[in-house]
């Protein structure tokens, strides 16, 4: 599903160049649930942004679902994000003047689906994350966990190939975090490929594979005995 080879990425800050990713090779198959761990500043978000076509690598080859991601126009990039990728952010990134339902329907709007179908699908995914009763509420009226679940529904709505989550539980307390992770695992069990950036060990342990980044290289890549969040509660 995902194939990275020899990915380099650096940031220019003033005079100096900060080399963040120094040759990443990574293969992720359909249906995997991968945790990306590492200390702060190790390049986790940078890697995820490249995977999400939100940013571009300086060097290296990225193939997503048999499509080479290279020198994309903004238009093409938008199209691929819309078709292939679902995002879950630490700070939720919901549009605050739109209701939960409208937020979930957003990617469908950019897919060009007719209104009726959008509403139908959005309702289906809201129900899936257990927020059917909150459809008409604005993000401001929801708790952190609820917001993240709306964001998950939104990420799922377009039925992407891959879900990318950058510290999805970073803004949540542990009980809520586990609820969210439970949901994510359920989605993975239905066959979706999922990548989660986290620096929390317990969250990483709920995934099936763990990739450890340090100073821009992968220092460890192992399968984990996936634990259910229920065991932590």
């Amino acid at each position: 599903m995902i194939s990275l080879s020899n990915i380099y990425k650096s940031y220019q800050t003033g005079q100096s160049t900060l080399q963040v990713l120094k040759g990443i090779d990574l293969e992720i198959a359909q249906g995997e649930m991968v945790a990306i761990m590492g200390s702060s500043g190790s390049g986790k978000s940078t890697l995820l942004n490249i995977l999400g076509i939100l940013d571009e690598a300086d060097q290296g080859k990225y193939v997503l679902d048999n499509t080479l991601i290279e020198n994309l126009s903004e238009r093409k990039a938008a199209l691929y994000r819309n078709r292939f990728l679902g995002f879950i952010f630490q700070s939720f990134n919901l549009i605050n003047y739109k209701t939960a339902l409208e937020n979930v329907a957003m990617p469908l709007y950019y897919q060009g689906l007719p209104r009726k179908e959008r509403i139908e699908k959005a309702n289906y995914y809201l129900e899936k994350v257990g927020l059917a009763d909150w459809a008409t509420h604005l993000p401001g009226e929801l708790s952190g966990g609820q917001k993240q679940r709306v964001a998950i529904a939104r990420a799922l709505a377009a039925d992407p190939k891959v879900l990318l989550a950058d510290e999805p539980t970073g803004a949540l307390d542990s009980a809520t975090s586990y609820e969210v992770m439970e949901l994510v695992r359920k989605i993975n069990e239905e066959g979706k490929t999922i990548l989660i950036v986290t620096h929390e060990n317990d969250i990483a342990q709920m995934c099936k594979r763990l990739v450890h980044l340090k100073d821009g290289v992968i220092i460890e890549d192992k399968l984990v005995q996936s634990q259910s969040p229920k065991e932590y509660v």
Binding site: R75, A78, N82, R83, I95, Y110, A158
Partner: peptide, 16 residues
């Protein structure tokens, strides 16, 4: 800006 960024992440093209 942020709203437009969210829209882009969700698949909005520059022209849209």
């Amino acid at each position: 800006t942020k709203e437009l960024g969210i829209r882009k992440a969700l698949g909005a093209t520059p022209s849209s």
